[in-house]
Amino acid sequence: MTNISSHRISLTTQVTGSGPAIVLAHGAGGTIEANFGGLIPLLARDHTVIGSDYPADDTPLDVDGLADALVAEAVAAGAETFTIIAFSLGTTAAIRAAVKYPERVRGLVLAGGFAKIDNRGRLNIEMWQRMLAAGDRESFARVVLLGGFSADFVNSIPEEQLPGLLAQTATNIPGGTAAQAALVATVDVRADLALVAAPTLVVGMTGDLLIDPANAREQAAGIPGAEYVELPGGHVVMVEQAQAWQATVSEFLERHPAA
């Protein structure tokens, strides 16, 4: 096995279940619980699930360091090989890990991701950065709701529940979100796509207002042999389309078991 590069990013990791290993890589402004909490119990029936939260402070992040740290945590948990299931920003780290450690990464599921963020996505993230820098949590919560979920989903929320939902979002912004947003704005793994050798499933969301599905399609087009599927709903697919998301992951793992 290739030695893991020296990494500078400290992650907080939880391991659940037993069996072939699956590594989870969450999105910016998310956590393992927020992005994968509904999926973990299903995966853990037959797998060792390794979920690592990114630093809860403004430790500067880079894609190499994040990829190295995710792989190091998996190896520390006893996993020599694994499939990575990644969301949004996490897909860039998963792609880089697959290129740097091809003998370890045996499969990829990439949801709501990008290789290099497009103009609209960058403008979204710049709004995040400005509001976080100003300490304007209330406006940040509104932007997250408007960008993270489809129009149909937001309009289906009873009006009287909106204030409580926004207050909850504003209160629970994870530490480290600013550093993660900065990485979203700058990361570029386009040159890595053609070098990915692991079986890959790319998932886009038709109603994604934060990361346009054209970004996911670019990932799929650039990765040799990658499969592509679109699910309805907005960016936060695990909330809007929980059953479809879980079924999509399960079906891929049936055809490409984690090693």
Rank of each mutant, 00 (worst) to 15 (best):
D136A: 10
Y101N: 07
M205P: 01
A181M: 14
G107S: 10
A134S: 13
L43P: 02
E33W: 00
A93N: 05
A194R: 14
L145Q: 12
V23H: 01
A56H: 08
Q161A: 14
N155K: 15
A259M: 14
L108P: 01
E138F: 05
A34S: 09
A197C: 09
A141V: 11
L43E: 03
E254H: 08
I84L: 05
H47V: 04
A134Q: 11
T16G: 01
D188C: 08
F149M: 11
A220R: 04
T177A: 12
G222C: 06
F36Y: 11
F153T: 10
G121R: 07
T12H: 05
S139F: 06
Q241A: 15
G207Y: 06
V236I: 15
D188L: 09
D68H: 09
V196Q: 08
V196P: 04
T206Y: 06
L42Y: 11
A197V: 14
V187P: 06
A221T: 14
D53V: 02
G65P: 03
G233L: 02
T59G: 06
N215C: 15
I117R: 06
T59E: 07
E218V: 13
L66Y: 02
I211S: 06
G234T: 08
L195P: 02
A247R: 12
A178P: 02
E230T: 14
A133E: 15
E159A: 15
A194K: 14
D64E: 13
E138Y: 05
V15C: 01
I32V: 13
G37C: 03
L61F: 09
S5P: 00
L43W: 05
Q161G: 03
V154K: 07
A44H: 07
P199A: 12
T16D: 14
P174D: 05
G176H: 10
R130V: 13
T31H: 08
A21Y: 02
I85R: 00
G90R: 03
L145C: 11
S10T: 11
D208K: 10
S150H: 05
A97G: 10
A97C: 04
A28F: 09
N119A: 15
P20G: 12
D53K: 00
P199T: 12
I40K: 01
A216M: 07
R45D: 12
I40S: 02
A67K: 02
Y101S: 04
T171V: 05
F140N: 03
Q246P: 02
E159C: 06
T169M: 15
F114N: 03
F149T: 10
I211W: 03
L89V: 08
N172G: 07
A141G: 09
E227Q: 15
H47P: 09
F153A: 11
R122N: 09
E80H: 10
G51L: 04
E218L: 15
G234H: 10
S10N: 07
A98Q: 09
I32R: 00
T83V: 15
P20F: 08
L132Y: 05
G176S: 12
Q246A: 12
P232V: 13
L193H: 08
D136E: 14
